[in-house]
Amino acid sequence: MDTIDQNLRAIRSLMERSTRFTSISGISGVLAGAYALAGAWAAEVYFLPAGAKGAMVFTALLILSLALLTAGLLSYRNARRHGERINSRPVRLLLSSLGLPLLAGGVFTLLLLEQGYLGLLSGSMLAFYGLALINASKYTAAYIKKLGVLQTALGLMAVAWPAHSLLLWSLGFGWLHIGFGFYVHWKHEP
């Protein structure tokens, strides 16, 4: 019976590796959260009081770029350690499932900014990001879906309570990433 269980686990593991990318870096989540908290602090202290929309957009793009670069590099390193190929079908599916909702959310957010709906920016960023995570979760670890649901819920709360949108944005992009990053690192990384 032990041999049957081991064989079934081996088959399941092989099938999962062929359809899912599981080398997501927990440390990249922690760093992405730290980048977001630093950006939220800069927005609160410098940009919002001065009404500097351009500086806020630049900071948001910088945070996004740093987070994506960090996630890409550290996940690539993890993939090499685990013998996964970074140019595989699961990675392509993951990136396309994540990328389309993120792109749509980015365009939507820029349109909100252009139209002057500043109170909806944080909520729309969180909601679209959460939906992108939910959409991409079928090609990666199951906890990504949970993170997506929490991000989407925070996004809806930020739209409902725009006076607290920066706080909710910090909670979602900052603290949730840090918490999930530590969880992933502790649970799945050596």
Rank of each mutant, 00 (worst) to 15 (best):
I27C: 04
S75Q: 06
G29H: 14
E114Y: 13
K138D: 07
A142Q: 09
G33L: 05
A104G: 06
G105I: 08
L68I: 14
A67G: 09
S97D: 12
L110Y: 11
N78E: 15
S25Y: 09
A52P: 01
A52C: 02
G26R: 00
A104E: 04
Y143S: 05
V57A: 12
G29R: 09
F58C: 02
G26I: 15
R89K: 11
L74G: 10
M56K: 01
A60H: 04
R81D: 08
T140I: 09
L131G: 05
Y35Q: 06
T70E: 09
A34S: 09
G29Q: 08
A71G: 07
L102H: 02
R92H: 10
I24Q: 07
R81W: 01
T59I: 03
N78S: 02
A79Y: 00
A52R: 04
L94P: 10
A104F: 13
A104R: 02
I24R: 03
Q115S: 13
E84K: 11
L111M: 06
S137P: 01
T59L: 14
I24T: 14
L61Y: 01
F47W: 05
I24N: 01
S25H: 13
G54N: 10
G33T: 03
S65M: 15
S124E: 06
A50E: 12
I63E: 01
S96T: 14
K146E: 04
Q115R: 13
G51R: 10
L103I: 14
S96F: 12
A71T: 11
A40G: 10
S25V: 11
A50P: 08
Y117H: 10
T70N: 10
G123Y: 05
S88K: 00
L131N: 04
A42M: 13
K145R: 12
T22G: 14
A142K: 08
E84Y: 14
L126Y: 08
A52F: 13
A50R: 12
G54S: 08
S137C: 05
G130W: 10
R85S: 15
L126T: 02
L93Q: 14
G29C: 07
G99E: 07
Y139T: 06
V30L: 10
L66Y: 10
H82A: 15
A60P: 04
L103V: 14
L126P: 02
I27H: 03
S124P: 02
S23H: 07
S124R: 00
W41F: 11
G99L: 05
L118W: 14
A127W: 05
L74T: 08
G29P: 08
A60Y: 07
L61G: 08
G39C: 11
L68S: 14
I134Y: 02
N78H: 12
G119V: 02
R77Q: 12
R81Q: 08
L102S: 09
I27W: 11
M125E: 04
M125I: 15
L102G: 01
A34M: 13
N135I: 06
L74S: 11
E114M: 07
G26S: 07
L98F: 15
F47A: 12
L94T: 03
L133Y: 05
S28Y: 04
L68F: 13
T140F: 09
K145S: 10
